[in-house]
Amino acid sequence: MSEPTLQIEGVHAGYRGARVLHDIDIRVPAGTVTALLGPNGAGKTTLLRVAAGLLRPSAGVLRLDGAEVTRWSASRRARHGVCLIPEGRGVFGGLTVRENLRMMLPARGPRGRVDDVLDVFPDLRNRLGQTAGSMSGGQQQMLALARAWLTGPKVVLLDEVSMGLAPLVVDEIFVALDALRSTGVSLLLVEQYVDRALAMADTVHLLDRGRIAFGGPASEIDRDGLLASYLGATTTP
Rank of each mutant, 00 (worst) to 15 (best):
E3W: 10
I8F: 08
E9N: 08
E9A: 14
E9I: 15
V11P: 05
R16H: 10
R16G: 08
R19H: 07
I24M: 00
I24C: 11
R27I: 00
N40L: 02
L48E: 08
A52M: 09
G53A: 09
G53C: 13
L54V: 15
S58Q: 00
S58C: 03
A59N: 04
G66Y: 11
A67N: 11
S75C: 15
A78Y: 09
A78Q: 06
R79N: 04
C83F: 02
G90R: 12
V91F: 10
F92K: 05
G93M: 03
G94N: 10
L95T: 07
R98G: 10
E99T: 13
P106M: 05
G109W: 12
R113S: 14
L118R: 09
N126G: 15
S136K: 09
G137Y: 02
Q141T: 06
M142C: 14
A144I: 07
A146E: 00
R147L: 04
W149F: 14
T151A: 04
G152D: 01
K154F: 04
V156L: 03
L158H: 02
L158T: 11
A166E: 08
P167S: 06
L168E: 09
V169Q: 01
I173N: 13
D178T: 09
R181H: 06
S182H: 03
G184R: 05
S186F: 14
D202G: 13
H205E: 00
R211K: 13
A218R: 02
S219F: 08
D224V: 15
G225R: 07
L226F: 15
Y230R: 10
L231S: 15
L231K: 09
T236G: 14
